[in-house]
Design a protein around this nucleic acid. Structure first.
Length: 409
DNA sequence: TCTGGGGTCCTAGGACCC
DNA sequence: TCTGGGGTCCTAGGACCC
């Protein structure tokens, strides 16, 4: 295996960074993003200095830090800046993995001669272009593997650039505690620390066979990557393929009301199906779940007789299985649906149980609805089961009666 | 400081088969 | 009667990520 050179680039407080780029007056102010009933999703360094952390409830910020500016979050802008940032990286590298909205990996291997620059200079150029053109602060890491590049980009933040030269890995691993390693979370950190493994260096020193014996496969890859052996591929495919799509909603106060819970699930399903249609994906399985006040999940998986992304069909299944996850004595805070085993395109195969024909008809209708929404905006049309659930005892059972199930506004 | 929303991958263990 | 060993597929759920 040839030595690689991987770049990792990470937006600093990305959402807030974009807000400041859009409105420079915010610069230097304590700013957080987060929805009203939600939690802090991003925060400026000034907000962090006050003691705010990611995950803090917004109401707490309002109460304890009244001077902090709270922004609702503008995902369209974040996505736009994100792709502009990735485009800058692509000026230099072909293989770019868009890992998340504010992070990517790029394979720089072999680019020194053609670009007539060192790897560090390439990273410097990318950083400067992002800083100047997008007015965004980013931190970069360059190393021989993805996991080491992650270590490097975290090394100096914000607006840092760190290169881990081959052979110098130890200097970094000694000062990286296990819970900071990408892929090692709270559970595994506790497991490792109980065995005297405090740092990435300790972890590497344990040897691959120990890791194989004690932990699962992903940790073997992490061990190799920390040791400078590149085993994680850069996945440069565009992010339009999903293996699952999930929609959830938390409400307050928590409730046991089945009609309300069903209407929430109905809404979840409509949104999930809309996204699936957008990406031309069809699930083979779905699952529905309720989350209790104590954060316990009650889940039901349903294998579809015939794959479809028509919400009318899927909602009637939800209605049938609801009792399996709902208990009369438990209070729930969240509903959710997941479309699983997604396959691309419309699947036209065996017409088992006549569901296929029904699904095909719905597909045509949804095409029209999606067109309407593209033209006039979202939420023009939605299912009556979503809207009127509070008045209806049964939901989605008459799903081929369109006049009753679709509400046109 | 009681905790949102959206993803991926892996494993243990059961069912079933030869 | 009681006993192998091995393979595959599927599901539930855990752990982790941003």
């Amino acid at each position: 295996m040839t030595k690689k050179t991987i770049l990792h680039i990470d937006g600093d407080a990305f959402f807030v960074g974009v807000e400041v780029a859009k409105n420079p007056k915010l610069k230097g102010r304590p700013v957080v993003t987060g929805e009203d009933r939600g939690i802090v999703s991003a925060l400026s360094y000034e907000a962090k200095a006050l003691g705010i952390v990611r995950g803090m409830p917004i109401f707490r910020v309002k109460k304890d830090f009244p001077k902090v500016l709270i922004l609702p979050g503008d995902y369209e802008s974040y996505a736009r800046y994100s792709s502009l940032m990735f485009d800058i990286v692509r000026r230099y590298a072909d293989d770019v993995e868009e890992y998340s909205i504010d992070e990517c990996f790029a394979d720089l291997t072999g680019l020194e001669p053609p670009l007539k620059m060192s790897y560090r200079q390439i990273a410097e150029r990318i950083k400067k272009e992002v800083n100047d053109e997008l007015k965004l602060s980013v931190s970069l890491g360059v190393a021989s593997t993805k996991v080491l590049a992650k270590v490097a980009s975290k090394w100096v933040k914000p607006n840092g650039l760190t290169v881990i030269e081959p052979g110098k890995e130890r200097d970094f691993l000694i000062k990286t505690s296990v819970e900071k390693i990408w892929g090692i979370g709270p559970k595994t950190s506790i497991f490792l620390k109980k065995r005297g493994i405090e740092t990435a260096e300790d972890f590497v020193a344990k040897g691959i066979s120990w890791v194989r014996q004690q932990l699962s496969k992903p940790y073997e890859a992490i061990w190799q990557e920390l040791s400078g052996i590149s085993v994680m591929e850069i996945d440069a495919r565009p992010k339009t393929v999903y293996s699952s799509i999930q929609k959830t909603r938390t409400f307050h106060p928590p409730t046991n009301d089945r009609v309300f819970l069903l209407s929430q699930l109905s809404k979840n399903m409509e949104e999930a199906c809309a996204k699936a249609r957008h990406y031309k994906l069809v699930p083979k399985k779905i699952s529905i779940f309720l989350k209790t006040q104590n954060f316990k999940y009650s889940v039901c998986d349903i294998i579809l007789q015939s794959p479809t992304n028509a919400p009318e069909v899927l909602i009637s299944l939800v209605d049938e299985r609801f009792e399996k996850i709902h208990s009369k004595s438990v209070i729930y805070r969240t509903t959710g649906v997941t479309l699983r085993d997604l396959q691309s395109g419309s699947v036209s195969q065996g017409d088992l149980f006549g569901d296929r024909a029904k699904a095909d008809r719905f597909e045509l209708i949804h095409k029209q609805i999606d067109l309407l929404e593209n033209k006039f905006g979202k939420k023009m049309v939605y299912l009556a089961s979503t809207h009127k659930a509070l008045k209806r005892k049964k939901i989605g059972t008459d799903s081929d009666d369109l006049d009753r199930d679709l509400l046109f506004l």
